[in-house]
Simulated scan of single mutants.
Amino acid sequence: MNVSLKKVITQLRENKQYFSTPCYVYSIEDVANNYKKLKGDLGTSLIYSLKANSCLDLILRCGHIFEDGVEIASIGELNLLPRGQVFRYINNPSADKKFLRSAVSSNSVLVVDNLSQLGLIKEVQVKRSINPLVLRLNHSILDKFGVIPGRVRSDHFGLSWGDALAALDICKKNHLTVAGFHIFRGSYSFIKLANITAQAALHITKSFESALGYPIAFVNLGGGIESHWQNQKFEFSRYRSLLSEFPSYIQIAHESGRAIMETAGYFVTKVRYVKWINKTQYGICDGGMAQNFLLAKTEQTFRRLQEPIIVRKGIVVDSGDTANCGYLVGTSCNRDDVIGKVMGKEIEPEDLAIFCNCGAYNASYTLAHFLRLPPAKSYLME
């Protein structure tokens, strides 16, 4: 049991009157440590992806931690943050003129996804000064500059190579400065593809600078870093050596949400009732998929439910000799609202179930409109 989990259990026991379930508990210390460790391993700038966790109180408390800025993916996220709190990169393939204007007025850097967006930016430029642009490239471009092992899922993000060259030409003709480019292979791709992506990006850098006629200043190599990257077999020293081949005037950046936030968050729900059906016990909780959609695992072909820590009257319940298997279910009246599995112990009313690794996407990816069920509260832990 790690230190922050012990602190969560202690807080729930000693200050239970201050907690209302279902809730998320976030460790500011874990966020800071994860960010510092990952940035050190990468040896580059590290941009936080706000969509992973947009809890306002948490972001405000961690603004000084995210020293290299945050990536914003919606106008709602943009309006969430007070101006001047952290530097912003705006990256959304459907950003319209209103969104782009708001981004420019907030002194954000625009990440251009398509030529139509570039046309809107030209219109905005007439009235406002715009920061140097970053062009997002579709990851299929990497195939032009290196051999990619295995099959990588295609996506619709970013510019094709032909559109990227056209965008560079448009920027030159309209006096729009290009800072550099952003290219990303997708979630969980870093360990497998980081070195090859960096090698290809070196060639892309030369092509950009040749087309523009001036040196670029920024290359974002994306993320795709797992939450437990420290346990993966990856030679970060070799990777840092490869990145040193980029010209010294270029700022190399990565971005991450999951690797920074996932292990720093916990989801806590209380068992209201217990019943048995065909020798299987069910704990009916006050929180479920309406407050933490990812725990229900409905998007996986084979559902591997997480087993939570069960706390009873402030004490962790250990597994016993019983072969009992039970399930924790939520309140949404949906048969898929099964959020956890309990092995070797019986569940009792008033038990607390603590789910680990819930700091990234668990809250931000959850829709709570069905039955007008209340969202989970959030608490910060120093």
Score class of each variant (00 low, 15 high):
Gly43Tyr: 08
Asp143Asn: 14
Asn174Glu: 15
Asp337Ala: 04
Trp229Leu: 05
Asp318Cys: 05
Gly63His: 15
Ala259His: 07
Phe99Gln: 02
Asp318Gln: 15
Glu262Arg: 12
Thr301Trp: 08
Phe87Asp: 14
Gly224Gln: 04
Lys16Ile: 03
Ala52Asn: 05
Val111Thr: 11
Tyr48Gln: 03
Ser54His: 13
Arg136Ile: 09
Tyr35Val: 02
Asn324Val: 11
Met289Gln: 13
Lys6Asn: 14
Gln232Cys: 10
Tyr249Gly: 00
Ile277Trp: 04
Lys270Ser: 13
Arg272Ser: 07
Asp318Lys: 15
Lys313Met: 08
Val317Ala: 06
Pro247Arg: 11
Gly257Val: 03
Phe184Leu: 00
Ser187Ala: 14
Tyr35Lys: 07
Ala290Val: 04
Pro374Arg: 06
Leu295Cys: 08
Tyr379Pro: 03
Asn92Trp: 04
Leu212Trp: 02
Ile183Val: 15
Glu14Tyr: 11
Gly265Arg: 04
Phe157Val: 08
Asn15Met: 07
Glu307Phe: 03
Asn231Phe: 12
Ser244His: 11
Leu202Gly: 00
Lys16His: 15
Gln230His: 11
Val316Pro: 08
Ser248Gln: 14
Glu307Met: 10
Val178Asp: 03
Gln251Asn: 14
Trp229Cys: 04
Thr197Trp: 02
Glu245Tyr: 12
Leu60Tyr: 12
Gly314Lys: 07
Gly344Tyr: 06
Gly119Gln: 14
Leu193Val: 00
Glu77Met: 05
Ala52Leu: 04
Val111Lys: 03
Gly224Leu: 05
Lys6Val: 07
Ala73Val: 11
Pro82Phe: 03
Arg185Pro: 04
Phe293Glu: 09
Met343Tyr: 15
Gly223Ile: 07
Leu118Gly: 02
Ile72Gly: 00
Gln85Tyr: 13
Leu60Ala: 05
Arg128Cys: 03
Ser4Gly: 00
Arg136Met: 09
Leu193Ser: 01
Gln199Pro: 00
Ala103Val: 07
Asn357Trp: 09
Leu367Ala: 10
Ser106Ala: 14
Ser94Glu: 14
Gln230Lys: 12
Gly359Arg: 06
Arg151Trp: 11
Tyr18Gly: 05
Ala166Arg: 14
Gln291Phe: 03
Gln85Ser: 14
Gly314Gln: 06
Lys51Ile: 05
Val104Leu: 07
Leu142Val: 15
Phe267Asp: 05
Gly340Asn: 06
Gly186Asn: 09
Lys270Asp: 07
